[in-house]
Design a protein around this nucleic acid. Structure first.
Lengths: 206, 206
DNA sequence: GTACTAACTGACTGATCAGTCAGTATTGAA
DNA sequence: TTCAATACTGACTGATCAGTCAGTTAGTAC
């Protein structure tokens, strides 16, 4: 009854699929691929185990779709941020990007958990579609920092350095902090301002 | 026959156990806990599946022993390094420690893969022994950087900063780089010298 | 109402795996 | 030689799970 307007329409399946994807994202992110069963995803979406195979042929296909979803979400979030924010200098743009990265990592923990799962990278080595999604994500993240650094070098706020390599180092650094926090080894939240200060010292023009 | 001198002696079991631990370390590190079967570990150690349960009561017990082994190895490696090396300044000590960290991560990839596995951290949240091993490792790694920074502040090579927080940031950074490399997304090896330069800029006294 | 299709289901299969257990082989000590 | 302990084994159990399939239900078009 609840779906009577949609049943059979082009949207019905899309909505159900999106439902499954949301559930699967959280489960894959938090429990990993192997420890998440298709039946579990189905149940939490309100369908019976076997039905999920009607929407996604295999577990791997579901996983790749989840990754694609995360990719789209991440790329959109950053593109929106840079549409709305403007910065006095390349250096400030870099620091803004880092802060926003940390912010998204907090409100969308699943995304970053999923990206860090070993299975994601193991599958990428073997499944071209998966690899492509993963590459888009990482390229996007690196290029954000790289662009800010390049702008900063043009306006004089950033010193002499390889924009590409420094962007990679900053990404590794930000990711490392996110990870420290999610592993509960230290309350890394208190490190955010320290991290920004460190990055400033690392790249600023003296 | 091959064990006839050892059979029954106090050492026989220890040697067999060490054998199993070496195999299990590599498997757990590369395939994860769930995707490694006890039978597989046993076979690769030259015993029949069921026999492994004679040496380790459960799979979890085996995992914790593997982690303990890694902990001991890591702590020993660093303690040896600092016994043999001496540095002109705290800053140089820090850079030496970072370089050595990257070096061990290269020759003992399994150790760092294991430490980064999600299962390791999930188990630590639930198993006190596991948690203790993990804490010893991280405390050791952080304190190495922290000590170098403190020495550097005393001798004037390192600027005004929180040694503890900066040590955490550097650890996150180094770990992030190791991870970038092991995920094959970029050839992070070429980033090592850039990383050291960045760290120098981050902490040096100006 | 009939015919057709999309969405869904329950019951099943075959495979894998942690852990058990009753029993065998090997060895050192008496 | 006997005894007891140590190290090991093969056969088994019970549970989980991805994926299949034949069939049912619900909605749509005519």
């Amino acid at each position: 009854m609840k779906n009577f307007l949609l049943q059979g329409s082009a949207n019905a399946e899309e909505i159900k699929k999106a439902d499954i994807l949301d559930t699967a994202t959280i489960l894959f992110a938090n429990k990993g691929f192997t420890n998440t069963s298709m039946t579990e995803v189905a149940s939490l979406t309100g369908i019976v185990g076997a039905t999920i195979f009607y929407h996604f042929k295999t577990k791997e296909e579901l996983f790749v779709s989840v990754l694609e979803n995360v990719k789209t979400g991440l790329v959109e979030a950053f593109s929106l941020y840079f549409q709305e924010e403007h910065f006095p200098s390349g250096l400030e743009r870099l620091l803004g990007a880092i802060a926003y990265h940390l912010h998204i990592a907090e409100i969308k923990k699943e995304w970053f958990l999923l990206l860090r799962r070993h299975y994601t990278h193991e599958l990428a080595a073997v499944n071209p579609t998966c690899r492509q999604h993963l590459e888009v994500v990482y390229t996007c993240l690196v290029e954000i920092f790289e662009k800010a650094l390049t702008i900063g070098q043009e306006d004089g706020s950033v010193g002499q350095l390889s924009a590409k390599k420094t962007a990679l180092i900053i990404l590794a650094m930000v990711d490392g902090i996110i990870q420290l926090e999610s592993n509960n080894l230290y309350n890394a939240g208190t490190l955010y301002s320290e991290l920004l200060a460190s990055c400033r010292k690392m790249v600023e023009n003296k």
